[in-house]
Design a protein around this nucleic acid. Structure first.
Length: 381
RNA sequence: GUGGGUGUGGCCUAGUUGGCUAAGGCGCCAGAUUGUGGCUCUGGAGAUCGUGGGUUCGAGUCCCAUCAUCCACC
């Protein structure tokens, strides 16, 4: 396979099993991607990530551009070399952070101005600036700069976000030149199906114009703007149709979703890739995923429970440590507690998607889906 | 032994010149967490104010006694 080729190994209903080639090896979908915002998956070493079967690791342009700076990452030989992870990597553009972190931000047609969360300094990004920064960081996959509207938002506001994100998609695609890196476009449109489909149409038109002019195409497509506070089922009113409106020959990446049941449902709708802070963030707060639902390890009922965290789990944490010990670590705010639960939660989602892939390859995704939904953990997520 | 200080939920404290259901932090118990500003956020339980008397319409606040504890001095 050539760089950024995408092969479809199997489908089962709308669910897909893809293989995608990057400069740092191939990855297989469906897939969950651990989030390493500041060039680290908090509490987890690159070696552990590999052992867990992690494929793509995320980093964040917003954070890295501020600390330690994109030029420094480039001087280190790029993000892979800097953090010593030699597998595929992806950088989020920072569009979401500008929406979620900055109290003061100003969007205009040409770009966005905001204040750094680190030192309050004024930062100005055009789509071209953002592409230059992501090329310096050097992940295998870059994301376009976009505008992620909050929820709820007026239809007019969401429509303008689609306009702006589309315009920026075209500029990002034109500005992006690094040959060993590909660029994903991002679909917006909030909870409005027609705006979502319009967003998809514009991305495809932008790509066609680019190709006609001898330019590049998108390596895949992010589906952004979901899981921003809406009720759980609202996303599924439009997700499937949106996902399947995207080109079949490239990956579809539902951004920011990490709830196990949501993953299982979204794969059934034709989504291939996910990322989320949920497994590692909740781990740091003492919550573990399990085959029987969410567990709050701070609960007193685990005080003298010397059994494994999840008897059905094969991860290093469950193979080695008891619930009582993990509760003790969490209650004492010991860093090892956050580490061990992060390892476990990442394994849970990575393994869940690996089993989803097996089901697709076996042509039995519907059975896998039904089994999960009927299982003891489904309602908890 | 003498003089002085202090005793308020598991711990540390706030409680103004005595006045409505004794406040806060930590801890404890539970919930939240979705393109990471997260030892975060939300809620809950828990106090016969050392003990026993007294003054007063009313005492955690004043008086007496007693116990505990700390400091200083013999």
């Amino acid at each position: 396979m050539a760089l950024f080729d995408c092969a479809c190994d199997a489908t089962s209903g709308h669910a897909r099993a893809l293989t995608y080639e990057t400069a740092h090896g191939s990855f297989r979908t469906p897939m969950f991607m651990p989030v390493g915002t500041s060039a680290t998956v908090k509490g987890v070493t690159p070696g552990q990530l590999r052992e867990l079967g992690a494929q793509v690791v995320l980093a964040n342009t917003y954070h890295l551009s501020q600390r330690p700076g994109a030029e420094l990452v480039a001087a280190a030989g790029g993000i892979h070399s800097f953090m010593a992870y030699d597998g595929p990597m992806l950088t989020d553009s920072g569009g979401f952070q500008i929406f979620s972190l900055a109290d003061t931000r100003k969007l205009d047609d040409d770009g966005v101005s905001f204040r750094s969360i680190y030192d309050g300094a004024k930062v100005r990004w055009t789509p071209e600036d953002n592409m230059r920064i992501q090329e310096l960081i050097g992940a295998d996959i870059a994301m376009q700069l976009d505008q992620c509207p909050p929820y709820p938002a007026t239809r007019e506001f969401v429509a303008r976000a689609v306009d702006l994100s589309s315009a920026w998609a075209a500029r990002c695609l034109a500005a992006h030149t690094r040959p060993d890196q590909t660029l994903f476009g991002i679909v917006q449109g909030g909870m409005h199906l027609d705006l979502r489909l319009e967003s998809v149409r514009r991305l495809r038109a932008i790509e066609e114009e680019s190709l006609a002019a001898g330019g590049r195409r998108f390596g895949g497509f992010g589906i952004g703007g979901y899981s921003v506070g809406e009720e759980h089922d609202v996303m599924f009113e439009t997700l499937g149709e949106v996902a399947r409106a995207l080109p079949e020959d490239r990956p579809r990446y539902l951004m920011g979703v990490g709830n196990p049941t949501t993953l299982v449902r979204a794969v059934r709708e034709g989504v291939d890739m996910f990322d989320c802070v949920l497994p590692t963030r909740t781990a740091r707060m003492g919550t573990a995923f399990s085959s029987t639902g969410r567990m709050n390890l701070r609960n007193a009922k685990y005080k003298d429970d010397f059994g494994p965290l999840d008897p059905a789990c094969a991860c290093p944490t469950c193979q080695t440590h008891s619930r009582a010990y993990l509760r003790h670590l969490v209650k004492q705010d010991e860093m090892l507690g956050a580490i061990l639960l992060s390892v476990h939660n990442l394994h849970f989602l990575i393994d869940l998607m690996a089993r989803a892939r097996e089901a697709v390859l076996a042509g039995a995704y519907e059975e896998f889906y039904a089994a999960w939904m009927a299982g003891p953990g489904a309602k908890d997520y």
